[in-house]
Structure formats: structure tokens, C-alpha cells
Amino acid sequence: MPSASPTAGSATPRIPGSWSVAYWVAAVLIYAALGTQLPQAVFLGFWQSLPYVLVFHWLRPKVLGALARGRGAAA
């Protein structure tokens, strides 16, 4: 199976699991907020969410990685 896990020695700091949970809660709330304004654009079927979920997956290591590096630099 292809793996998205950081390899040993990777520059990406370890991302706490609670951050991932918070990230996905925020992603759900963003999508829900979009739906309250444009329900016909995002709430007609799960297929409409596929590109958004793909982008949220793509962004997750970038956003959380940047936050983790920021915290590491501040410490």
C-alpha cells in the first residue's frame, strides 16, 4: 500500500493526533458553513464533497506541518 507517512529522518515534525482531529472538525465546519450559503452547490449528494475532501487531505500535512514547525521554532 502506498504510504503518506513521514519517513525516518524527515524534516516534518510529528503532528499530534489531537491536531488532526481538530483539523477535520474545522474542515467539516467549513464545508457545513459553505452549505448554509450554497446548499445546492455542496449538499445535493456526497459526490459533491469528493473534491473538497481530496483538497482537505492534500492540505492537512502542509497546514499541520507548518503549525508544528512554528511551535518548534517558538519553543
Partner: peptide, 24 residues
Amino acid sequence: ASETVMLTVYRASAFFGIASIIGW
């Protein structure tokens, strides 16, 4: 497809279900 695509397929319906309940 990559693991990212597989996870998207795996989670999309749950993501949509939860988000659409809140939004609706």
C-alpha cells in the same frame, strides 16, 4: 491511486453526512 485518494474515497461519505447534517 495514491493513499490520499483512497482515504478520500473512504471518508467522503462520512464527511459529507456529518457536514450536511450541521449545514442543513
